[in-house]
Computed example of a mutant assay.
Amino acid sequence: MSRTPYSRLRIEGFRKAEVSLRLEEMDPSGTPLYESIKARIISGELTYEQGRSEILAYYTKADTAGPATVGEMLVEEFLKPLSMSHDELAESMGICKQDIEDIICGLRRLTDDEARVLADIFGTDEDFWCNLQVLQDRPEQRRK
């Protein structure tokens, strides 16, 4: 099968996209999504930038998931692994259980003081918690 110069350019573009993904430590080779996008790039249906964006969106869930919330991070990365209850966290922080529940459910913001306390409790950086809150706030600001 003879390849036209244009199809060779598309294949070369696809190879660039593959290298870029590998540099970002993402190698989806062999997955059905990846192979489908590869075929669409080679056929000319997509540019390699479009294909790369589709792959990144799928693997990072950037198109639907949004950033992790303070509550999700607290529960999944700290409370569950440490087998720590909401009551225990509230007591450690010196706040009521309802405040913890509200933070976890996203009904109230994490204050700077609470970010400092969480950093002390879990041995993290205070900015970690503040940045999570800022990221969580952004989608709400866009809706207004």
Rank of each mutant, 00 (worst) to 15 (best):
T124W: 01
R40Y: 03
L79G: 02
D112A: 15
L46D: 04
S7F: 03
A65V: 11
E25D: 13
K97C: 02
L82M: 11
I37D: 00
Y58I: 03
K38I: 04
L89D: 06
T60G: 02
L110Y: 04
E77Q: 12
L9K: 13
T124K: 12
L21C: 06
Y59E: 02
Q50M: 12
I55V: 14
S83Y: 09
E12I: 07
R52T: 08
Q133M: 05
V19S: 09
G51P: 01
D99E: 13
F14K: 09
E76Q: 14
G13F: 10
N131P: 00
S36N: 14
A119Y: 09
H86K: 15
D102R: 13
E35S: 08
Q50H: 09
R116N: 11
V117K: 15
Y59R: 08
A115R: 09
G71I: 02
R116P: 00
L132A: 05
S53I: 04
D27Y: 04
R15S: 14
M26K: 11
L9T: 08
L56Q: 13
F78A: 02
S53N: 12
D120Q: 14
A57W: 01
P32Q: 07
M93Q: 02
L46H: 06
K61G: 12
D125M: 05
A17Q: 08
G30A: 10
R8I: 10
L46P: 05
A57C: 07
E25I: 11
E77C: 09
A115V: 06
Y59Q: 03
M84D: 03
D87T: 13
F78R: 01
Y48L: 05
C105V: 06
T69A: 10
G51T: 03
L33G: 05
I11P: 01
E114C: 03
I41P: 05
P28I: 01
S85I: 07
P67F: 12
M26R: 14
L89P: 08
D127M: 14
I103G: 00
G13C: 12
G94E: 02
E45Q: 13
E54I: 13
L79I: 02
D87N: 13
L107E: 15
V75A: 00
I11D: 03
I104D: 00
E12L: 12
G30T: 11
L21N: 02
I42R: 11
